[in-house]
């Protein structure tokens, strides 16, 4: 079975700064990490491979600046077999439509896969759109919000999808793209052998021309959406703080507050 995992490198979440003029993120090497939600996708791919008993190969693909090679290596250290980095100045500023187009191009270039895993969303852009869009570019089914793989056979898969109010059991055909949610597994920590293997591995860099991509479909120019303004929300509400009162008084105040808000 040919398995692919799509991973994104994201800024370590609490240190994000934005360039308010260009609407892009200001990042430095130290602040980047593998998207935490992609670890569940990597883990699930590795578990599928373990269940199949070696009869599978996992390829990691990431699109991003050259430093995103670290995200690919993190995934490899958890048990993936090989990795590619899609990196090219022409790709800078791609929105989800253009990102998904480029990633689907890399998937085609590498010969296609039976199972493609991705995370529910990246913790920076947070759209959750790249997975379903990649599936659409490849014209294969997308199983989103997967919380469990119930059965996997050569040409067919049955999963649970976590949806509003419960879960749905769905079957479809392979090849398929799955976006997984956090409850699907508990990602492993890479062991030393895994880390060493990842460190030594060569990660080929693919460019727009390697993949024969249409230049007018990628980068800022190829993106249908445009960030036109960035601003910081004011979180602070300057609410009323009840302090140093006994529990009875505090609860009284709380109840009148809830009444005044029409909640009680």
């Amino acid at each position: 079975m040919r398995i692919c995992v799509l991973v994104k490198q994201v800024p370590a979440t609490d240190k994000v700064k934005m360039d308010e003029k260009t609407g892009t993120m200001i990042r430095t090497e130290m602040e980047a990490e593998l998207n935490p939600l992609d670890m569940y996708a990597v883990e699930e791919a590795v578990r599928v491979k373990e269940r199949l008993g070696g009869n599978a190969r996992i390829t990691v693909i990431s699109m991003g600046p050259l430093m995103a090679v670290d995200a690919v290596k993190d995934a490899i250290s958890m048990g993936c077999d090989e990795g590619y980095l899609l990196s090219d100045k022409l790709l800078a500023g791609s929105d989800t439509w253009a990102t998904a187009y480029a990633l689907s191009g890399a998937i085609r270039y590498l010969g296609g896969f039976d199972l493609i895993f991705c995370g529910e969303r990246a913790t920076d852009g947070e759209t959750g759109q790249v997975g379903p869009s990649v599936a659409s570019w490849l014209n294969i089914p997308a199983l989103t919000y997967v919380s469990k793989i119930e059965r996997l056979e050569e040409r067919y898969i049955r999963v649970r999808r976590a949806v509003e109010g419960g879960y749905e059991v769905v079957e479809t055909e392979l090849p398929v793209l799955l976006s997984v949610v956090k409850e699907i597994n508990e990602p492993r920590l890479p062991n030393l052998a895994g880390k060493l293997r990842a460190k030594e591995m060569q990660i080929p860099v693919l460019t727009v021309d390697d993949l024969n991509l249409n230049r007018s479909f990628v980068g800022l120019e190829g993106s249908p959406t445009r960030v036109v303004k960035i601003f910081y929300p004011k979180l602070s509400r300057n609410g009323k703080i009840i302090s140093g009162k006994n529990p009875e008084e505090a609860v009284d105040e709380l109840i009148s507050f809830l009444e005044s808000k029409g909640i009680l």
């Binding site: 929105d95 989800t96 439509w97 998904a100 947070e126 759209t127 959750g128 759109q129 790249v130 997975g131 379903p132 869009s133 599936a135 659409s136 570019w137 997308a142 989103t144 919000y145 999808r161 976590a162 949806v163 509003e164 993106s223 249908p224 959406t225």
Partner: peptide
């Protein structure tokens, strides 16, 4: 932006060839 909307809209936007803003 429910599980359905977040699934169907990116597929549709890709098929049509237009942009999609999330959530």
């Amino acid at each position: 932006a429910t599980t359905m909307g977040r699934t169907i809209m990116p597929i549709l936007a890709t098929r049509i060839g237009t942009g999609l803003t999330a959530d």
